[in-house]
Write a protein that binds this DNA or RNA. Structure first.
Lengths: 222, 222
DNA sequence: GCAAATTAATGATTTATTCAAG
DNA sequence: CTTGAATAAATCATTAATTTGC
């Protein structure tokens, strides 16, 4: 089992860098389990934790987890729609049996998938957990390119890292009144300083530090 | 001038944390300039640089830049569609003047918006530059909450941080060299200066370190 | 003039679609 | 043909303009 059958893509002698993540069975199993628990759009922390947990079964990055949930959610929903449609269609052909006094089973949207609720009691908030998500990452090439290339070098991702907190901030209004002249050109003075204050390692301030999924440190992946 | 006219929203005694970024005029001007230069989906590096540059005019994070481009692109496109539609509609009422032997001005999709072509010679690369993006960031609460709350505490974001490996990256790719997607075609002069490519700042290491847009370290913003 | 009420813009998230690797 | 990856479109929510009554 733990032999990551495919997980460790190493099999293929190819450059070893795999253009895309290839989940192992264990990883998928866990992800599906979490999904069934109710997780839909994991928070940064959750992604971190999940990623760490899945890493023992094969190389993986936070973004893979992020994408997996996005895709899975979307595709489950789509499947659901199809099935719902098929169901209604079938009703047309086979008139429904007299419902008796059953409570409309359709009061709630049809969650064909989620019924396991009773099952294991992991946790998870109602439906949407607090989560706002967006991920940004950039690949080194655009689609056309990707197709063409795919050689040694391939897409590199840029990761994301977050932290929380907003502190005071003052910005000011401004007015978009539509027109907004375009003097923009203006001298964009160079910014040399560039500062990026990165220097200090974000210090461990009270405000939650930085989430580093989508990481891509040297060793991080594969 | 630089006195942040509005910038420093500090005025409002309110918690000072602003739920959302409020761009200054200068920032908008620069962003629009870059947009006109052809930037549509900036890469991580570009976002970094742009953010750094805009920061001198007011607090800002990488994600704001990212979102700005996404929204601006989408809304420009939408506006274009509206105008195109309006144009066709008007044609119905006012039959077009005899075109003579003009080359069909409609070979290319109607970009009512962009007509200035002849004018300033900005230019623009084909359309998509190399860019893949995704951003992830998470807020501490979901929408319902946000609405309800909006008190002292509010959404905290988690940022993203990326690294990249490919540095080449031309900020302005200019010259379409033939490829030229479908539309637009026009490329005109290049954009001379304006370049952001400087970047050298960021250590010149080969593996680009981590991009910290969406940052929100203690001092980082504002 | 100035706030409450309304409306218009637009920043920020989520959902749907698309593309291509395996 | 499945599905990871990325983008575009749609949607939500908040802030600024603007209007309105005083």
């Amino acid at each position: 089992m733990e032999d990551q059958e495919k997980g460790n893509n190493g099999s293929s002698s190819s450059s070893s860098s795999s253009p895309r993540w290839n989940p192992t069975k264990e990883q998928i199993g866990i992800l599906e389990g979490l999904y069934r628990q109710g997780i839909r759009t994991p928070t940064a922390e959750q992604i971190q934790q999940i990623t760490a947990r899945l890493r023992q079964y094969g190389c993986i990055e936070g973004k893979n987890v992020f994408y997996w949930f996005q895709n899975h959610k979307a595709r489950q929903r789509q499947k659901e729609r199809q099935e719902t449609f098929a169901y209604f269609t079938s009703l047309v052909h086979h008139p429904p049996p007299p419902p008796g006094k059953v409570f409309s089973s359709f009061c709630n949207p049809v969650y064909l998938q989620a019924p396991q609720v009773g099952g294991i009691g992991f946790y998870q908030q109602p439906q949407y957990q607090n989560s706002f998500y967006t991920s940004t990452l950039r690949m080194g090439m655009n689609r056309e390119r990707c197709k063409a290339v795919h050689n040694g070098n391939h897409c590199n991702h840029e990761a994301i890292n977050g932290s929380t907190s907003h502190q005071t901030l003052e910005l000011f209004p401004l007015h978009p009144t539509g027109i907004l002249e375009e003097k923009s050109g203006s001298s964009l003075t160079s910014v040399e300083s560039e500062s990026l204050e990165e220097g200090e390692e974000e210090m461990g301030d009270e405000n939650m530090p930085i989430y580093n999924f989508f990481s891509s440190n040297s060793q991080r992946l594969c």
